[in-house]
């Protein structure tokens, strides 16, 4: 039984809650109002909420001046492709960890021993480079690191038991972008680490900076741990008994996966897509650092308005509203998924 409340108490709570809710929403509302003002009204003092006449000209001007739809197109490409690519990696991984978990580590070495191997490899290479004073090309160093780090690293990660793998995936999300910015910038740059003239092959025509080829995989990697975790928590809730029953009835693994499991998993996959769309849409660090024209998404589009010439507030407001409206609506529909996805299943 819920406790009964006196109507007066309910009224009081209603007033307080609505006041706070409206206050929280107010900056968005204020932006929306400013978007419909003419530029001179936006600058008039005192500021009025309901200026007349209302105008839609700002939206047209924003489109004409900075080609809003191109940025929407860019954002959509990055968001959709990175979500699809992420699902291609995440669905099998989450399925594997939820339905074919390994309780014991597959390797006879412990995680600590693996880490010791990786880091001693690193130290030996460092000492070798230091004492021979040999300065290899950056590309060579990159590929050497790929060998001495990624191979044992993936072997180690792969040899973990399921909960170990999950936690390791979570920990990759903790990597601050400031720590990865420098190598990623240099790898992406056509004159940087990889994409430059190697003497026998010229890669400097290829450039990952400011291109979808760079942004889409990057965005996938950024959100992959969250997608995997979220799918895992959804898959975990599917009763294994149903799968066993299908198996008992003679369903092949293929049928088990696609006739039985997939229909039950679809709602979870859809929610995961929503969360990933929100996260990718609102990503700003890498977008601001790695794009400036051809693959620039909406966060970059708005940042262009930070150093304007002349009167621009009504236009800034119009641009802002156009940039947040789609994701706001998606966000309203996915509150539950947000809680699940952004607490890694620690709060349900």
């Amino acid at each position: 039984m819920a406790r009964r409340q006196s109507p007066r108490r309910t009224l009081l709570i209603t007033i307080v809650a609505w006041t706070i809710g409206l206050l929280m929403f107010f900056p968005i509302f204020w932006t929306a109002v400013a978007a419909f003002k003419s530029e001179s009204d936006a600058y008039s003092l005192p500021q009025t909420v309901l200026s007349t006449p209302w105008t839609f000209e700002n939206f047209g001007i924003v489109q004409d001046r900075s080609d809003y739809f191109r940025y929407v197109f860019n954002t959509t490409v990055i968001v959709v492709l990175s979500t699809l690519l992420g699902l291609m990696f995440a669905i099998p991984a989450a399925w594997s960890m939820a339905f074919a978990p390994t309780a014991q580590s597959r390797s006879s070495l412990s995680g600590r021993q693996w880490l010791a191997i990786i880091f001693s490899g690193l130290v030996i290479c460092f000492l070798g480079l230091y004492f021979t004073d040999w300065k290899p090309s950056n590309a060579l160093v990159g590929f050497a690191l790929l060998l001495i780090f990624v191979v044992p690293g993936s072997l180690w990660a792969w040899s973990q038991n399921t909960s170990g793998t999950l936690l390791w995936m979570l920990s990759t999300k903790m990597m601050p972008p400031a720590g990865a910015l420098i190598p990623i910038y240099l790898i992406f740059n056509r004159n940087g680490l990889v994409f430059k003239d190697w003497g026998w092959i010229n890669l400097s025509d290829y450039n990952l900076i400011d291109s979808f080829w760079g942004m889409v995989p990057l965005m996938t990697l950024l959100n992959l741990p969250i997608i995997i975790w979220m799918l895992f928590t959804y898959f975990k809730e599917i009763p294994v008994g149903i799968l066993e029953a299908a198996r008992m009835d003679g369903a092949s693994l293929w049928n088990e996966l696609f006739r039985v499991l997939t229909p039950m998993a679809l709602p979870g996959i859809a929610s995961t897509c929503l969360l990933n769309i929100i996260l990718a849409w609102n990503e700003a660090f890498w977008s601001l650092n790695l794009t400036n024209k051809y693959a620039a998404p909406l966060s970059f589009f708005i940042s262009e308005y930070s150093s304007p010439e002349g009167q621009f507030w009504a236009k800034l407001s119009a641009a802002s509203i156009m940039a947040i409206a789609p994701i706001l609506v998606i966000g309203w529909f996915s509150q539950k998924q947000l809680v699940r996805g952004l607490t890694f299943g620690a709060v349900k």
Binding site: M24, I28, W281, L298, S299, A323, I324, L328, W332
Partner: peptide, 8 residues
């Protein structure tokens, strides 16, 4: 709502 607003 504020959580869904682009940081920029």
């Amino acid at each position: 709502s504020p959580f869904f607003v682009l940081p920029t």
